[in-house]
Simulated scan of single mutants.
Amino acid sequence: MPCAAVLTYEIDPDRPADQHIRIARQELGHRIASFVGCPFEGEYSPARGHAGQAYFIPGDTLHADTAAMLGILGEADLFGGVVPEHFVATKSITHSLLDPSAAAPAGWSHQLGSRLAEATLNGFSVFSRDDARRAGGQLLAKGAVRTKPAYASAGRDQMVAADLSELDQILDAMDEHVVANGLVIEENLVDVETYSVGQVRIAGHVASYFGVQRMTTDNFGGAVYGGTDLLVAPGEFDNLLSLDLPEQVRLAVSQARTYDHAAFEAFPGLFASRRNYDVVSGTDSQGARRTGVLEQSWRMGGASAAELAALDAFRADPTLRAVRASSFEAYGGVEPPSGSIIYFHGVDDRIGPMSRYATVASHD
């Protein structure tokens, strides 16, 4: 069925995203429309019909039921991802259960964790306090642990415990539903660097990338995400690995590729056109350098403006082997540089003046 329209989709209309995010999503919609060959028509409304299949840009990963309601059948129908169970979109799938008898949600894959062991840090996913304490006890024998609620994002609500007493305090202060929805307990690293490794797929155009995030200061003096600098290659992860990359970067890309392949094989009904994996490198309690995938993101993200800029560059010049693309989120009265691709430049209702833009350049 031909594409009728490109539409954004707000997961919870009663709690809309910030103004700058909504406007940036609209700009992304206009740019994606040029790839899929149909007009961008704004936000989805159930009252409005279309003569053909719509292409969606949702604000978050979709559950299969929502996707079916929207007529989304595969990765060609959206910029983002669709999961068969809600927990599949969370970091809980990164690790195994403590043992086969441990609590787990319906649809859990008992094989995925072992397949990911070489691509992730040491850790467990738990869904009860008893399992959390037992898992923490095992990991604490080798050093400090980090607790991470499965549904929290951007590092929110993470805590570090150096011994079982500290872990008990963390667990006692945690709401029961937080643990029941999934808690990751993982070895804690220090002196860390976090990388982004991912892939985008739109209307037959594919690009894979490695990136490093930047932090900046917002209008209230807080440290926040400031953008990502990407090295992007056309095609699959193997094309990215064919470039001259430092060994640490090569390891991060290889681990993300392993995670990507294993996750999509483990959960029938999972599909995504935008795939991003956070990979961490740091020092463990024994002083050894460790690298592993932390979590996945199958939805529009902060680096998506840069991803689209790279994809557009490859469309314009198919001979390019790689480009450098960057996304920026700048606060205050910062003017986007000449030639940049502007996604938002103005005053957000909640956070004040800011600019969101992207740049792309050749890779030497």
Results as ranks from 00 to 15, higher is better:
residue 321 R to H: 11
residue 173 A to M: 00
residue 329 E to P: 03
residue 242 S to K: 07
residue 314 F to Q: 04
residue 44 Y to V: 04
residue 158 Q to F: 07
residue 213 Q to R: 08
residue 140 L to F: 01
residue 21 I to T: 14
residue 241 L to N: 05
residue 197 V to A: 01
residue 107 G to I: 05
residue 330 A to S: 10
residue 209 Y to L: 09
residue 98 L to A: 08
residue 336 P to L: 00
residue 103 A to I: 15
residue 212 V to K: 12
residue 9 Y to I: 02
residue 296 Q to I: 15
residue 325 A to H: 10
residue 299 R to A: 06
residue 6 V to D: 03
residue 52 G to Q: 00
residue 154 A to T: 11
residue 84 P to Q: 04
residue 1 M to T: 01
residue 46 P to V: 05
residue 58 P to W: 01
residue 7 L to K: 00
residue 4 A to M: 00
residue 83 V to N: 08
residue 297 S to W: 06
residue 31 R to N: 05
residue 89 A to P: 11
residue 108 W to M: 07
residue 358 A to P: 12
residue 106 A to P: 11
residue 116 L to H: 10
residue 59 G to S: 09
residue 83 V to H: 06
residue 24 A to W: 02
residue 216 T to R: 09
residue 243 L to I: 00
residue 217 T to R: 09
residue 152 A to T: 14
residue 37 G to H: 00
residue 121 L to R: 02
residue 38 C to I: 02
residue 316 A to R: 10
residue 247 E to G: 14
residue 76 A to K: 14
residue 218 D to H: 04
residue 259 Y to N: 04
residue 86 H to G: 14
residue 62 L to P: 08
residue 124 F to G: 13
residue 96 S to R: 15
residue 185 I to Y: 04
residue 2 P to K: 00
residue 95 H to Q: 10
residue 189 L to R: 03
residue 323 V to Y: 01
residue 260 D to R: 09
residue 240 L to I: 10
residue 170 I to S: 08
residue 320 L to H: 06
residue 329 E to A: 06
residue 199 Q to G: 10
residue 229 D to G: 10
residue 166 E to G: 02
residue 165 S to T: 11
residue 44 Y to S: 01
residue 269 G to H: 05
residue 363 H to Q: 09
residue 94 T to I: 02
residue 338 S to D: 11
residue 220 F to N: 12
residue 265 E to A: 07
residue 111 Q to E: 15
residue 155 G to E: 06
residue 92 S to L: 01
residue 67 A to M: 01
residue 80 G to M: 01
residue 286 Q to R: 15
residue 352 G to H: 04
residue 332 G to T: 01
residue 289 R to I: 09
residue 92 S to W: 02
residue 32 I to A: 05
residue 163 D to V: 03
residue 253 V to T: 07
residue 296 Q to D: 09
residue 232 V to T: 10
residue 198 G to Y: 04
residue 54 A to H: 00
residue 25 R to C: 07
residue 12 D to V: 10
residue 49 G to A: 09
residue 124 F to Y: 10
residue 174 M to I: 09
residue 71 G to Y: 03
residue 328 F to E: 14
residue 312 D to T: 14
residue 298 W to I: 07
residue 140 L to D: 00
residue 117 A to F: 06
residue 202 I to M: 07
residue 58 P to Q: 00
residue 217 T to W: 12
residue 266 A to R: 02
residue 3 C to V: 00
residue 286 Q to A: 13
residue 153 S to N: 14
residue 168 D to T: 12
residue 220 F to S: 12
residue 264 F to Y: 14
residue 295 E to H: 01
residue 238 D to C: 04
residue 197 V to Y: 02
residue 285 S to W: 05
residue 202 I to Q: 05
residue 164 L to H: 15
residue 94 T to A: 05
residue 242 S to D: 08
residue 174 M to A: 11
residue 245 L to C: 11
residue 202 I to L: 07
residue 161 A to S: 07
residue 101 S to K: 13
residue 354 M to W: 13
residue 249 V to H: 11
residue 130 D to E: 15
residue 69 M to R: 13
residue 290 R to E: 05
residue 345 H to T: 06
residue 83 V to T: 10
residue 63 H to S: 11
residue 214 R to M: 09
residue 123 G to V: 03
residue 349 D to W: 12
residue 52 G to P: 01
residue 322 A to E: 05
residue 354 M to Q: 15
residue 29 G to F: 02
residue 103 A to H: 14
residue 136 G to V: 02
